[in-house]
Nucleic acid binder design. Sequence first.
DNA 1: ACTTTGAGTGCACGCACGTTCACTCAAAGT
DNA 2: ACTTTGAGTGAACGTGCGTGCACTCAAAGT
Lengths: 210, 210
Amino acid sequence: MTESAHAASRQEQKERTRQAILAAALELTQTVGFAQISLRQVARHAGIVPTAFYRHFESMDELGLALVEQSFSTLRHMIREAQRDPKVFDNIIDAAADVLVEAVKHSKAHFAFVARERVGGSEAVRRAIRHELDLFVSELAIVLARLPNIETWSFDDVQMVSRLFVRNMVSNAEEVVEMPDGRPDLEEQIKEGARRQMRLIVVGFRDWRS
Amino acid sequence: MTESAHAASRQEQKERTRQAILAAALELTQTVGFAQISLRQVARHAGIVPTAFYRHFESMDELGLALVEQSFSTLRHMIREAQRDPKVFDNIIDAAADVLVEAVKHSKAHFAFVARERVGGSEAVRRAIRHELDLFVSELAIVLARLPNIETWSFDDVQMVSRLFVRNMVSNAEEVVEMPDGRPDLEEQIKEGARRQMRLIVVGFRDWRS
DNA sequence: ACTTTGAGTGCACGCACGTTCACTCAAAGT
DNA sequence: ACTTTGAGTGAACGTGCGTGCACTCAAAGT
């Protein structure tokens, strides 16, 4: 056994290269769509020779799917963390707006990738993102269903509100992504807009159904 | 003077080729993003030799902007027609849902192009679409401001509702575009969803502000 | 001490691309 | 009848691409 000291340097190095490829692709994707970056560009950016790429991914499409997975696992992790915060129960709307803007700012590249490839990507990538978003809607619906104001609603209604929330989240994330850096005023404006929209949904839904 | 009979066949032919190029690009764009189709593909599809392309457009980017313009002029034309219909005043929400679905179905390709290139396109194309959508928000706000329920609202409020409507329109258009052909049940479902969302916005806004 | 493994290399290939240039040949202008 | 114009042609170029193949050379396994 040689698993010894500080983990096997063999797999370690492979994983490091894999991450370098993912990071390179993510960075290149910030200026143009994923579909129009080449395997050679990615390899060059990652500091490897083009053929070495194949040791990690069978094709660019597979790399794209890996990026989708990485993006959503980042996002999901943030949501899980935010749920532990007790303020969420007090005021889910303000909390959601805060989390959204912070999350997008923190991993802008991943959000930008998802926002862009959600509609512009290859068939496979698009489907993967759509699927992840559907999962996300269901996950959010569970959280929502436990909230004081909402716990009496029907399953379908909660699901629909959840869908509206996610849709708005996507739209707002797009806006934050397109936001030029160093404009905290714009950021606050987007946050306030998101808050108002969510309040609109909740208020309107309650009154309409009552 | 030779402007005679049925218009000069010289410019006529040029215009026909131009339209063939636009149509070719639009069709090719249905399966992949505009940025990843090549000048040569477009030329091939349009039935001309690659170099002839330059007689009509200086670059693919210019062609992209022309497609944006064409798409929105189609859209705007439909909205103008719909405004003449008196039922719009009676029930703008149901009318809007109908118009939206019909419009998207009628010129699916243009909507698909806009939906995709809005976020996935080149910088120039993206900016052009964003600008057109902003214009559209203002235009819709004028229509909305004349409606019975809304005429007392402030300018900013109307503008915000208009923005929400357009955002929802874009989302729903995306859904219709992704909708497989020959599924009238899905279509009705989307339409109903759009209706509910719009009602939500109007109801929620009124109650929240009152 | 030895073999095996596999991440990364370097070269070579055929292909599609954007763009150039000199050209044809009808319609439009005179 | 003539010239001019300009949309469309066809060959040629340099470039970057994806991918195949034979390779190196340490780490991992024995």
